[in-house]
Simulated scan of single mutants.
Amino acid sequence: MSMPSRIAAACAAFFLVLVVLVAAAASAVTAVATRPFAALWHAVVGDSQHLEHEFGARQYVALVASAEAHAPTRAAAEAVAFAARRIGMPYIWGGAGPVGYDCSGLTQAAYAAAGIDIPRTATEQLRSGPVKLLSRLRPGDLVFYGNPAFAHHVAIYLGALGGAGVVLDAPRPGEVIRLDPLAAGDLLAATSPAG
Score class of each variant (00 low, 15 high):
Ala10Gln: 10
Tyr91Phe: 06
Ala25Pro: 09
Ala67Asn: 03
Ala190Gln: 11
Leu168Ser: 04
Leu161His: 03
Leu142Lys: 01
Pro36Val: 14
Ser192Asp: 11
Asp169Thr: 09
Pro4Met: 05
His50Ile: 12
Ala194Gln: 03
Gly56Arg: 07
Leu182Met: 13
Leu106Trp: 05
Gly174Tyr: 12
Leu158Ala: 05
Met1Asn: 07
Lys132Tyr: 12
His70Gln: 11
Ala113Asn: 13
His152Asn: 08
His42Pro: 04
His42Ser: 12
Gln49His: 13
Ala8Glu: 12
Asp169His: 14
Ala26Asp: 13
Pro98Leu: 14
Val29Tyr: 10
Asp102Lys: 08
Gly46Asn: 07
Ala33Glu: 12
Gly163Leu: 00
Leu126His: 02
Gly46Ile: 02
Thr121Asn: 10
His153Arg: 02
Pro90Ala: 07
Leu168Arg: 01
Arg58Cys: 05
Pro119Lys: 09
Arg120Ile: 06
Ala149Arg: 11
Gly159Glu: 01
Pro193Gly: 04
Ser192Asn: 08
His152Ile: 02
Val32Tyr: 14
Pro173Met: 07
Thr34Ser: 09
Ala194Thr: 12
Val64Gln: 02
Arg127Ile: 09
Ser135Gly: 09
Tyr101Glu: 07
Gly140Val: 06
Ala96Leu: 09
Val32Asp: 11
Ala155His: 00
Trp93Asp: 08
Glu78Asn: 11
Ala23Pro: 06
Asp47His: 01
Ala75Lys: 02
Gly140Ile: 04
Val61Trp: 00
Ala9Met: 13
Tyr145Asp: 08
Leu51Phe: 15
Gly174Ile: 13
Gly140Glu: 01
Leu179Asp: 01
Ala189Thr: 12
Gly195His: 03
Ile7Leu: 11
Glu78Arg: 15
His70Lys: 12
Val19Pro: 10
Leu158Asp: 02
Arg172Asp: 11
Ala96Phe: 10
Ala57His: 01
Arg86Leu: 06
Ala96Lys: 13
Val44Ile: 13
Ile7His: 11
Ala13Pro: 01
Ala13Arg: 04
Ile116Lys: 08
Ala113Phe: 02
Ala57Tyr: 00
Val19Thr: 15
Phe144Lys: 06
Arg178Gln: 14
Arg6Cys: 08
Pro119Glu: 07
Ala76Met: 03
Gly146Pro: 07
Gln59Lys: 03
Gly165Phe: 06
Ala160Ser: 12
Ile87Arg: 08
Val176Arg: 15
Val99Ser: 10
Ala23Gln: 07
Met1Ser: 11
His50Phe: 15
Val167Lys: 00
Ser48Thr: 12
Pro181Phe: 01
Cys11Gln: 15
Ala194Phe: 02
Ala170Ile: 02
His53Leu: 15
Val45Thr: 15
Asn147Gly: 09
Asp180Trp: 09
Val32Ala: 14
Ser135Phe: 03
Phe144Met: 06
Ala83Pro: 05
Ala62Tyr: 00
Cys11Leu: 09
Ala151Gln: 02
Leu133Gln: 15
Pro98Met: 10
Pro90His: 05
Pro90Arg: 10
Val80Glu: 00
Phe55Trp: 13
Gln49Tyr: 14
Gln49Ser: 13
Val176Asn: 10
Thr123Glu: 09
Val32Phe: 13
Ile177Phe: 02
Thr191Ala: 10
Pro173Asn: 08
Glu52Thr: 13
Ile118Gly: 08
Pro173Trp: 03
Leu134Gly: 02
Ser5Gln: 15
Ala122Trp: 00
Ala69Arg: 14
Ala71Cys: 03
Leu158Lys: 03
Gln49Pro: 08
Ile177Gly: 09
Thr73Arg: 00
Gly88Arg: 12
